[in-house]
């Protein structure tokens, strides 16, 4: 009896020490303020080749920044309301934005020119996501009007409108294989839809959150879906059958955004509880935690996870640069 108790203590001690060593020795980031919007920053998105990232804000603008420098390159103006979400196209040439002014807009990343104004939603647009194929011909959008719309970028035409959510839809993600999109809603569900032009009913309805689901995202192999909610929970789903793989309390306040790393396992989360956290979702194990002292609306990271980016409530855009790395092979994108 006594032997087994001692043995258990030894096992626990080894586990705790090995875990804490992983956090303290392998991952350490230094935070810096890269720049500022005139109001709260609602979204951040890193492009495919890690050379730029974009941010959008309540100040109605979008800013494009260089990587790894974090230097502001240009400001895109045109929206007549808060810009809630942005997404680079798979070929990095275009940027889509969704706004309080009920429009989705398409921008030329290189020139900053506004190429299209897509009108059709009947309430503020909350989520946008470009198809991630080389042609980048489609954009998906979600809105407080409870619908999900798929747009043909070249013609500006709505390809289809998907209905089924019973409350406003918050965010949308395109799978990297291009076959499906997933949407998160205040109705506490995630719906998975086909991107073909014929199917209008959802392929799956994922139930597991007990609060409005704020964001949803596919892993790069399109095998997993991650989502977060307003109670601070993160759920990892099997994209093939919609089953919950992991569910854990990640934050103590609204967790507006999560981002997958390229290993399809590591997850970055940001919350209004001021924390940015990196997770190994297979545990889940907390890999890194930073208190930025300000609410975080959105997060993203570069391919090798050497830079984490936080879009903050105080209008700042913060870069967390890795200062101590040990053979990290993580690759990350939103």
């Amino acid at each position: 009896m006594r032997f087994s108790t001692i043995y258990s203590f030894i096992l626990i001690a080894i586990f705790v020490l090995s875990g804490s060593r992983a956090v303290s020795e392998e991952l350490n980031y230094k935070s810096e303020i890269s720049g500022k919007h005139e109001d709260e920053v609602m979204a951040v998105f890193v492009n495919e080749d890690d050379t730029k990232f974009a941010t959008s804000s309540l100040d109605e603008t979008i800013k494009i920044w260089s990587l790894p420098e974090g230097k502001e390159l240009r400001t895109l103006k045109g929206h007549l309301g808060a810009v809630y979400n942005i997404s680079f196209s798979g070929n990095d040439k275009f940027l889509a934005s969704g706004s309080e002014d009920w429009t989705v807009r398409i921008w030329d990343v290189e020139t900053g020119e506004q190429l299209k104004v897509l009108q059709g939603h009947t309430a503020p647009v909350i989520g946008v996501y470009f198809s991630q194929d080389d042609e980048s011909s489609l954009v998906a959008s979600t809105s407080f009007d409870k619908t999900v719309k798929l747009w043909d970028v070249a013609s500006g035409t709505e390809i289809k409108t998907l209905r089924g959510h019973t409350q406003p839809t918050n965010n949308v993600a395109y799978s990297y294989d291009g076959k499906t999109i997933a949407t998160a809603s205040d109705d506490s569900t995630i719906r998975v839809w086909s991107t073909d032009f014929e199917t209008a009913a959802p392929l799956m309805v994922l139930r597991g959150h007990n609060a409005p689901v704020l964001t949803v995202l596919y892993s790069f192999d399109s095998k997993r879906i991650v989502s977060s909610d307003s109670d601070g929970f993160i759920v990892i789903w099997d994209a093939a059958n919609g089953e919950i793989m992991r569910k854990f309390k990640a934050h103590t306040d609204i967790t507006q955004d999560v981002s997958f790393a390229g290993d399809n396992r590591t997850i970055l989360s940001g919350s209004l509880d001021h924390h940015v956290r990196l997770w190994d979702s297979d545990g889940p194990f907390l890999l890194f935690d930073a208190d930025l002292g300000v609410g975080v609306w959105s997060v993203d990271l570069v391919s090798d996870a050497s830079i984490l980016i936080a879009a903050c409530e105080d209008g700042t855009v913060r870069l967390l640069r890795k200062v101590e790395a040990k053979n990290s092979k993580k690759r990350g994108k939103k």
């Binding site: 059709g120 035409t157 709505e158 390809i159 289809k160 032009f197």
Partner: peptide
């Protein structure tokens, strides 16, 4: 409403208020 060119049947959408 402008439809994109396609050589197979498609349904496009437009809600009206």
């Amino acid at each position: 409403v402008s439809f994109p060119k396609t050589d197979k049947y498609a349904e496009f959408s437009r809600d009206l208020t």
